[in-house]
Design a binder for these strands. Structure first.
Lengths: 206, 206
DNA sequence: GTCTATAGAGTGATAGAC
DNA sequence: GTCTATCACTCTATAGAC
């Protein structure tokens, strides 16, 4: 946190998280950074660029993290577990940036919006690929890949909105709870109705 | 949509959903309603009061809906299914209001914020009670009630952010997918820390 | 790299005519 | 119940001194 550019950045993250992007003014960020508001524009050419730089770095780190977590794992269930665990971990450990990344996309210009959404889509596709593979290998039930990938990602992401760093459970304990819940949901062993019918089909086909 | 008060309200819902509360101005709402901005203040005494009236009605209807959906059902699994199904249905059918109710709480005054959070807590407690009951009756596994209730609610709520009314699946089809995923997750969820051990056991037993 | 000063536009809200 | 006019303020961003 040596230079002013990073100080401004971390004050902005704090304020965008607490008050929201539109409700935060440049002068508040300047005040928190201990400089005059005009000086902000030496480091960032606009408020929107400051937001974009935060979102871009967060998305890049997220995808990089996922690829690293999956490297070397062969078994599909272990892969899903590693992906979910890492996703939860990342969102709880960098709670504020991730909260902003999921709620302030509307603050971006059209071009910047496109860049971030592309990165998000790339990340989602890796996840969807894992679910699809697990389904094809018969490890998971015949689930709807798109709907459940959205569900799983937002489920874990949501942790960033209520997580209390000093609370009852550690990051890894929470990640384990999610991991088990999600893998059970994907396997759908006990679900009656349509799910049970699908499950029976699979068993018979083995 | 006969009177102006309701017109203003529905234009505000549309704009708050699309652009966000802080990024929407009174004059935009007036323009959309076909009147001058000063006329807004005849119907609502401030922008914040307009937001509050939207959130309050949404939360009241949500809880009312849940109580109605649960009435007369005895079996705990059927109760959870009805609660989840109704929750998803409500959020998809009133997508915009619900999106606002989950992202614009920071726009409220301290007192109004308290009112809405109280209503949200009341709703959450009903849900938590159902999960707790299911666990005590042995229908569900020994899950963490608080964490999973947040997880389940945000999971279903998130539907309101990506749902496309004219899309591939109907509201009830999506609700069914969620229902099965959640009930499966609740039945087979393990205690924290057991994920790796359990998975290893499974692999060895093959 | 940070400052003071200010441009230029938009904001929520009110007063008072009709 | 809607209008015009306006107040008082805040906002992002820039110019130019140091």
């Amino acid at each position: 946190m040596g230079n002013m550019k990073d100080t401004i950045r971390s004050i902005a993250i704090e304020l965008f998280f607490r008050k929201g992007y539109f409700a935060t003014s440049i002068s508040e960020i300047a005040k928190g950074s201990g400089i005059q508001k005009a000086s902000i524009y030496y480091h960032y050419k606009s408020k929107e660029e400051l937001l974009f730089s935060i979102l871009k770095a967060t998305m890049d780190d997220l995808t990089h993290d996922l690829k690293e977590n999956l490297a070397g794992i062969e078994d599909i269930e272990s892969k899903i577990r590693a992906a979910v665990h890492g996703h939860v971990r990342f969102h709880l450990e960098r709670q504020k940036e991730n909260f902003i990344a999921n709620s302030e996309l509307r603050g971006l210009t059209a071009e910047h919006y496109r860049v971030i959404v592309e990165k998000r889509d790339e990340y989602e596709e890796i996840f969807q690929g894992l679910i699809r593979q697990g389904r094809e290998q018969g490890v998971f039930a015949d689930v709807d890949v798109k709907i459940l990938s959205y569900a799983i990602l937002t489920l874990c992401t949501a942790g960033a909105s209520w997580f209390n760093p000093g609370g009852r459970l550690t990051v890894d304990e929470i990640a384990d709870i999610y991991e088990n819940f999600i893998v059970s949901g994907l396997k759908q062993g006990d679900a009656p109705g349509m799910a049970r019918a699908r499950h029976a089909d699979q068993v018979l086909a083995r």
